[in-house]
Every structure is written in structure tokens, then in C-alpha cells.
Design a protein around this nucleic acid. Structure first.
Lengths: 187, 187
DNA sequence: CAGCCGATGTCAGTTCCTGTCATCAACCTA
DNA sequence: TAGGTTGATGACAGGAACTGACATCGGCTG
């Protein structure tokens, strides 16, 4: 299969399958490569390490977050701009609940993968803070708004994934954000 | 030095020195063990992996956060209880600025170490949310309060460490928290 | 067709980390 | 005091993650 197209995609799929079937630690990179019809060395040319294969490179999600935020009117208060962004992103996820769930199950089952996910969220937070700063928001308001936005997203996402009955993700986002506002106001 | 006391402490000190001198990746576990007068195998009996040596085991910091929060009057609003906790913790750090700075410099220089620190902060956030729940705070308010508290701490800590002139850490905490409240209120 | 180029293979090597068993000092206990 | 037990450490072998160097293959360009 050396010259079949989409080597990277084959590796991603093989990895997700194997991690699901027998767990992250019980899977070797050599096995992933073999299932994709490639060699271990080639795996490491496409992904920096064994975990990265689960996190799409040059994250399109982060890009979407940032560009949506950048497209928001500058007159809006930072927290309102963030609210707009979160709802837009939630809409993206809306019809991929099962896929999100499977991926999240693999990540939840392994500490190293959770570690990597935290890095991705931190990177997202930093990118959002940068974007806010470009729009004239000063520190520490920019970083705090970004952190708060990511926290709201994370918590709403967990609830959306974990609840047995499907609820509207946008609605969960709005509820969580309102809750944050209430908490901050000392309620 | 096989039977000298405090093997764990010697390993921690040797690691911090070597990581500072030549960097985390350029230091092997065998070198750390050798400087501490022990063997590589013994290092891994004391620390789960090469990074963990920088993060005190059974984190006393997390313990302090939690017990301080638990000691706060239940009548207080969650955000106010969190404010009390953050200021108490800040007081702990107050006289260790240089040590904090050196440690943070090592961590900032390496992605794997930042990754591990994020895990510690996530663990802290989870512990705080648990404690709030025990005090009757419902979800998602508990998790949001915890995340917000950790975010405020993180951002105030960065400012405290990075500014050339020493400012009062407690004061930075209060300012950051006020800023968060302002942001959440849509200012 | 010749030659270059990017993706892949092959191989050797380092380092992280683990399992297993031997060793040693300290401490009971009779 | 002798002997056994215990907990920490050493010694060794080995798996798996990752890297560097160089060879190979197919496609593309002139």
C-alpha cells in the first residue's frame, strides 16, 4: 500500500480503531502502521508522537474559533463576543454527537490522552486571548475572557456528551454561560 | 550513598539542578540518579516518570487549597469562598517568589512539562469542584466556580512571576478576580 | 529519456520505563 | 546475641517510543 493515497488519514483511522478495540497503552505504533500498510518510521513522519494522531494537525477547530471571534463586531463586550463564538461552534458539533462521543471515550480512558487534550485547550485559550487583544481588549481581561469561554465550552461539552438524552448543545452553552455570570455576580 | 537519608529529596534537587543547567530533554534519568548517588531504577521507584520529579507528590498545594475552601463558612457565596482561598494561597507563595520563578522557568522551557502542569491544574480544579459540591453547590455552578478560580490564580501567578518589580501577590489576585467579575458582567 | 524530488523503507541506536530477583541495612523477637 | 523479617536499593534484561542517516521508489519536469 506504499503508494496508496492519504497515508495520514489511514494512520488516523487505524489508530482510532486500535485504541478503541484494545486501549491506547495496549496498542503499539508498529501495529497502527501495519494496519495502515505502512511502517513505524512513517508514522513518526506524520505525527510527532503516539498521542498526536488523535488530534487533527493545525487544528481546524481552533482556526474556526479564532476566525469566528475575529468576525464579531468590535463594539460588542468581550463576553458577548465569546458567547457568539461558543454558540457558532456548538452548532458545528450538533450533528456529530456520536463521533464526538467515541473519540471522547478513548481519551477519557487514558491519562496521557487527557493530558494532550488539556494542551490543546490551553492552546485554544491562548489563541482566543491573542485575538481579543488584537481587538483592543487589555490584559488581564483578554486572558480571563478566553479562559472563561473555554471553561464554559468544556463543561457544556461534558454535559452534552454524558447525558443519556440528547439536548441542544447551544442551549447547554447558554445555560452554562448564564451560570458563570451568576456565579461571578456572587449568587 | 545508598543508605543516606532522603533519597527522594536528593533526586528532586539533582533533577531541578540538571534541568536548569542543560534543559529537560538534554538530561537523562541516569544522570539525575548518578548525581543523587542512586541508580536509574531507584528514580522510577520514587517518581512515576521523568516529569513528575518537578511536581511534589500527593500535592500539598492541592491539599491546602481544598482544606482552606472546606474551612470557609457555608453561608458565603461560592465565588466569595473562592476569593478567600485564593488570597490565603497567595500569602503562602508571597515569600518564595524566587524559587517559584526558577521552577517556572524550567517548566516554561519545555512543552512536556507544561503539559504536566496543566494536568495538575485540572486535578486541582476537579478537587475544588468536589469540595464545593460537598458544600451544597450544584452543577454546573461548582465546576464553573472552580475553573474560574483556577484561571484567576493562573493569570495572577503569571503576572506576579513575570513582572520585574515585585508586587503584592494578594493584590494581583484581587485585581484579577475583580476583572473577571467585570468581564462576566459584560463590561 | 535523464534527472530531480518528495514520500517511504530499512536499520541502528538512544532513552524511557518495567519486571524480576538479588542484596543490604535496620528492626524485631526470642 | 542469633536469626528472621522487612523495606529500600542494586543489577540485569527487555519492550516500546522515538530519532538520525541513508537507500529506494514513483512521479514529475525538462
Amino acid at each position: 500500500m506504499r503508494w496508496e493515497p492519504n497515508a495520514r488519514g489511514r494512520l488516523e483511522q487505524a489508530a482510532l480503531e486500535l485504541y478503541s478495540e484494545r486501549g491506547f497503552e495496549q496498542t503499539t505504533v508498529a501495529e497502527i502502521a501495519k494496519r495502515a500498510g505502512l511502517t513505524e518510521r512513517t508514522f513518526f513522519r506524520h505525527f510527532a508522537d503516539k498521542r498526536e494522531v488523535l488530534f487533527p494537525g493545525a487544528s481546524p477547530l481552533e482556526e474556526f474559533f479564532v476566525s469566528t471571534l475575529a468576525g464579531t463586531p468590535e463594539s460588542a463586550a468581550p463576553i458577548d463576543a465569546m458567547a457568539t463564538v461558543l454558540e457558532a461552534v456548538a452548532a458545528l458539533f450538533q450533528d456529530r454527537r456520536e463521533l464526538s462521543r467515541r473519540r471522547q471515550a478513548v481519551i477519557a480512558a487514558n491519562a496521557e490522552l487527557q493530558e494532550r487534550e488539556l494542551v490543546k485547550l490551553a492552546s485554544l485559550s491562548a489563541a482566543l486571548a491573542d485575538t481579543l487583544r488584537l481587538r483592543g481588549v487589555t490584559e488581564p481581561a483578554a486572558s480571563l475572557t478566553a479562559e472563561a469561554g473555554v471553561a464554559v465550552f468544556k463543561i457544556a461539552f461534558e454535559r452534552w456528551i454524558s447525558e443519556s438524552n440528547t439536548r441542544d448543545f447551544c442551549r447547554l452553552i447558554r445555560e452554562s454561560l448564564d451560570e458563570l455570570k451568576a456565579v461571578a455576580a456572587g449568587k
